[in-house]
Design a protein around this nucleic acid. Sequence first.
DNA 1: AGAATAGGTGACCAGATGGTCACATGTAAA
DNA 2: TTTACATGTGACCATCTGGTCACCTATTCT
Lengths: 106, 106
Amino acid sequence: MSDDDRVFKALADPTRRFLLDLLFARDGRTLSELESELEMTRYGAMKHLKVLEEAGLVITRRSGREKHHFLNPVPIRLIHDRWIDKYTERQVSALTELKHKLEGNT
Amino acid sequence: MSDDDRVFKALADPTRRFLLDLLFARDGRTLSELESELEMTRYGAMKHLKVLEEAGLVITRRSGREKHHFLNPVPIRLIHDRWIDKYTERQVSALTELKHKLEGNT
DNA sequence: AGAATAGGTGACCAGATGGTCACATGTAAA
DNA sequence: TTTACATGTGACCATCTGGTCACCTATTCT
């Protein structure tokens, strides 16, 4: 499987996106911490984190018996760059800002 | 299914990403034109385009018996904005530019 | 050492997904 | 008004995916 295939497959699941949201809010959490936020067993959470790690969206570091997880935004940026060139970027980001405002998310 | 779920599910398949690449290179193609670039039957191609359309990644316009397809980059930008905030954007885009250069893609 | 804590593996099953086919509709050309 | 062209629908099947469980290893605490 190619690198970008792994990234897109990883992002396809809502649980995995929620995990990225959690790490975006606060980095460095352990498996146990993350698992407690999910409505599933530890095994399910582990599988999801493994998929994210193999896609390079999450980076991990062990310390003793704990494994800490960190969000890596680079693959996300590469998705963006694939279908939005620099010339249209301004217009698109203006549009999305408008969308945010209309939805009251600032 | 939620909007963003549709978008991520749509992007999870390599054939659908290839279709977006084709439309990114040149907009407004018909089903027949797109299908001829794929190694599958027309029915497979149709299914993929339907998924992309329902996700809002592709916009269509009929003219006579032809259906023309256009790329809509807005959902892609929203993915970017979800996990890359404005403060870290500069650093991340510097990193990805470096990656592009190292890979010889300019 | 023994108990508790944190993380890991392989098998298994229900449900979702990708692709094909038979068949059907609407539009344009001869 | 036939004939060809462009697109559409529902059923079907092999394969992939998400989630759970029984069982296992490594580290820390008492």
